[in-house]
Amino acid sequence: MSAAVLAADNLARRFGGLAAVDGVSLAVAMGEVHAVIGPNGAGKSTLVNLLSGDLAPSGGCIVLDGRDVSRLGPARRSHLGLGRSYQKTNVFLPFTVFENCRLAAQSRLATSMRFLRPASSFAQVNEAAGRALEATGLEPRRHAVVATLSHGEQRHVEIAMALATRPRVLLLDEPLAGMGAEESAGIVALLRRLRPDHAIVLVEHDMDAVFALADTLTVMANGRVIASGPPATVREHPEVRRAYLGDESHA
C-alpha cells in the first residue's frame, strides 16, 4: 500500500470536560477507502470536523501530504486538496445546482478578486462544474434550484460540490443518510468510481455500504478507536462485536 495522503496522529478534541475525540490515529492512502463507524456519539462527526479544519484540535496532529496542517483553517486545507461533504446537507439552497458546483469550482481560481469579468465566462470553472455534475448524475437537474430538489438529490449536490473543488482527499460524513436503497446503491457505485483517484474517509452508518467499499475499517466508541484494520479482521474483533456490531444484530 502506498504512503498515507492524510494521516491523523493521536488526535483529541475536548468540549469542556467531555473528550469527544480522544487519541484517535488513522491514515488513508490514495486509492483507498477508509471507513469510520461507531454508535451515535462516538465522535465520528467531530473527527471529520477536525480533519477538515472546521474544528481546531485540542491535541495531536494532522498531516496532509507530509505537511502538518493541524493549525490551518478549512479554507487553507481545501486548497491543499481536502474536500468534504456534510452530514446535514450544507449547500446553497437558493442557487441552482450548476451554480452550487460552479461556485465550488470557482474556489480553484488563483483568486476570486475579479470584479468586472462575468463569473460565467471562466471556461475552466464551468468545465470543472460540469464534470462534477456528470460524475454525480446531476446533469439533467442542472438548472433546478437546489431548495426544490429531493433530499437524495441534495445529497448528490453535496458530493458534487466537494468534487468540483478537485480534491485528492474526500471526507464524506454519512453521504447515505436518509437515502433509499436505490439511491444508496447509486452513491456506492459513484464512490467506487472515485476510489482510484482519491483517498476517501467515509463515515457511514449503512453497514452494507461500508463493507462493500472499505479497504480499512476503524471503529470508534466514546471518542476512542477500539479497533482498526481490514474489515474482515475488525469484524471478528470481540470488543467491536460487543460494542457495536453486536448491538446491530440484536436490533
Binding site: D54, A75, F92, L93
Partner: peptide, 28 residues
C-alpha cells in the same frame, strides 16, 4: 458588473452560507 463577477458570486455565497464557503476554500 460586480454582481455577475467572481467576486460578486463569492459575496452571494457568503450571504447564503458562509460556513460552506470556507469549506470550499474561500478566505471569506
Amino acid at each position: 458588473r460586480l454582481r455577475a463577477s467572481p467576486f460578486g458570486r463569492v459575496l452571494d455565497g457568503i450571504r447564503v452560507n458562509e460556513h460552506r464557503m470556507r469549506a470550499l476554500g474561500f478566505a471569506t
